[in-house]
Amino acid sequence: MKELISLFTSAIVFGSVILFGATGEILTEKSGNLNLGVPGIMYLGGIAGLVSAFFYEASAAHPVPFVAVLISLLCAFAAAALGGLIFSFLTISLRANQNVTGLTLTIFGSGVANFFGGSLNKLAGGVGQISVSVASSGYRAVTPLSKMGPVGELLFSYGFLAYLAVIVAIAVQLFLNRSRAGLNLRAVGENPGTADAAGIDVTKNKYLATCIGAGISGLGGLYYVMDYTKGTWANDGTIEGLGWLAVALVIFATWRSVNAIWGAYLFGLLFWVYLYIPGLARSTIELFKMLPYLVTIAVLIIVSLRNRKENQPPASLGLAYFREER
């Protein structure tokens, strides 16, 4: 029982990281922009949160957790959105190839983050490991409800970002399907020519969706740094792996952020399940870690076979738009 609960809680923690990444990417892709820079953007969000919290804690005599959280949250969102802005400018204004730009952004983001992360570790001196304990404690603060036995542990033992991830996912779903602005945004991703003819500003919609989407994705990196690794940094490339899982999750969720919620937790379960299967060798552990990707491939096959239009990616995903001139 105890083991099962700890499996579920670690699945939810894991899932929350990629849920942010996937929700942001869903918003972006609904505008027709395929941003493969998600891993890089999550890196940017993570390092910006860490750096800002580090300098706040270093400069303030008595750092307050709430302020540390607020500063790092805003910085993470802004840095990630800036990554989205780079992508937007290159692909929307300059019409660069989206795949190439996205992959470049991934390399750029991880390079920047690991450079500054490594430098911070050096700056921190001592054991060579920085720790933003005040900010991290703010992120990991839980309510007394978490003490209520197994149920409390299962439902209430997480930092606030885990709940925010679910709220954002639901909000994105509602925005896309229930609001006029969401309808217009989806039209841009499906058929920009039609949207343009209907008087919708295609460029503005793509920019906003991509930057805000990137900001949301970046919070995944922040959650990883502040909660998952408790305010420390390691140049081990884990965020990149999580970023690609987030991209896979977008496909798994068939571009619906509500599906991404349970999809994220399922990915988390599949990822950690090896810990609870006795007698695994090191090599077989890696096989189990492949499960989320295998499930994504299975979903792709099933979705392609069923061929329902609603489950397909936005029709103009990955394509630059320019008005037809004669």
């Binding site: 039209a187 499906e190 039609t194 949207a195 209907a198 239009k309």
Partner: peptide
């Protein structure tokens, strides 16, 4: 035709309107 395939007739009709 300038229509979005995955939208309903009604959704296509109000697309872009600032009501």
């Amino acid at each position: 035709f300038k229509l979005v395939d995955v939208f309903t007739a009604a959704e296509n009709i109000v697309l872009g309107l600032k009501e």
